[in-house]
C-alpha cells in the first residue's frame, strides 16, 4: 500500500442561505486515499459528491474538519497557497469540460503551465505531447466550439495532466457524453492510472463505471455509508 495522499477527517460543510436558514450538506465525512489509487465516489444526485470534491480540490473550504493533501494542511493554507496547490498538485476534469472559449486546444492545455511559469518552448512541447496522449494532436488549433463533447473532454484531461499533478479529480466526466464516448474517456483514466500511476478520484453516476475502479465510496445525504473494493 502507498502512502496516504488525501486525508479527510470529520468534514462538515454548511451553506448559509440567508439567516437563520442553514443547510448542512456534509455531516462529518472521513476517508483516506492512497497514492496511486483509483477511487470512485458514488451517490444519488444532491448527496453532496460535488461539494466534497470541491473541498478536496481546494476550490472551497470545509466549514469544519481537518484535511491534509500530500502532507499539506489545507485548512491552514492561505488563498494564494491554495492557488499554487490547485496549479501543481490537482488536475480537474469537469462534467461540463470548462475549456476557455475562444482559445484553442493547445493554448487550453498550456494554461496551467502558463500559471506555473513554465517557459514557452517547454510548455508548447509538453502540451503537444499531452494532446498526442489523448489522441487530439490533429485538433491542436481548434477552438473548443469546434470540438465534440468527447473531444473537449479529452482536451480537458490533457489539461488536467499539464503540471503532472499528484491527483486527478473528475466530477462526472462522462455525465454529458453518450456511452461510446464515455467509454473512450474512461479508458483514458485507466491509461493514466495504469501507465502513469496517477491517483484518481472519480465521481460518477454509473455503477458499471464505478465497478472498474479499485475502491468505491458510497455517499448518501452527506454521509459515507459504505466502502468496498471494486474490480479494477
Amino acid at each position: 500500500m502507498g502512502r496516504t495522499i488525501i486525508d479527510l477527517k470529520d468534514i462538515y460543510k454548511r451553506f448559509y442561505i440567508g439567516t437563520p436558514n442553514e443547510l448542512e450538506v456534509l455531516h462529518g465525512i472521513s476517508f483516506n486515499v492512497n497514492e496511486g489509487e483509483f477511487v470512485a465516489v458514488v451517490g444519488q444526485s444532491g448527496s453532496g459528491k460535488s461539494t466534497l470534491m470541491n473541498i478536496i480540490g481546494a476550490l472551497d473550504r470545509p466549514t469544519e474538519g481537518a484535511y491534509m493533501l500530500d502532507g499539506v494542511d489545507m485548512i491552514a493554507a492561505k488563498d494564494n497557497e491554495l492557488s499554487k496547490i490547485r496549479n501543481r498538485k490537482i488536475g480537474f476534469v469537469f462534467q461540463t469540460y470548462n475549456l476557455i472559449s475562444k482559445t484553442n486546444a493547445l493554448k487550453n492545455v498550456e494554461m496551467p503551465m502558463l500559471y506555473a511559469g513554465v517557459p514557452g518552448r517547454r510548455r508548447i512541447e509538453r502540451a503537444k505531447e499531452l494532446l498526442k496522449m489523448v489522441d487530439m494532436q490533429d485538433r491542436m488549433k481548434h477552438l473548443p466550439e469546434e470540438l465534440s463533447g468527447g473531444q473537449k473532454q479529452r482536451v480537458a484531461i490533457a489539461r488536467a495532466m499539464a503540471n503532472d499533478p499528484a491527483i486527478i479529480l473528475a466530477d462526472e466526466p462522462t455525465g454529458a457524453l453518450d456511452s461510446a464516448t464515455g467509454r473512450m474517456v474512461m479508458d483514458l483514466f485507466h491509461k493514466l492510472h495504469d501507465e502513469e500511476g496517477k491517483t484518481i478520484v472519480l465521481i460518477t453516476h454509473s455503477p458499471e463505471l464505478a465497478e472498474e475502479t479499485e475502491r468505491i465510496i458510497t455517499i448518501r445525504d452527506g454521509n459515507v455509508i459504505g466502502e468496498r473494493r471494486g474490480n479494477g
Binding site: L59, K84, N98, I100, M111, P112, R159
Partner: peptide, 13 residues
Amino acid sequence: REIGTRKALGAPN
C-alpha cells in the same frame, strides 16, 4: 465561469 476555471487551474488572484 471562465474566471472560475482559471482559478481551478491555479491562476493566482
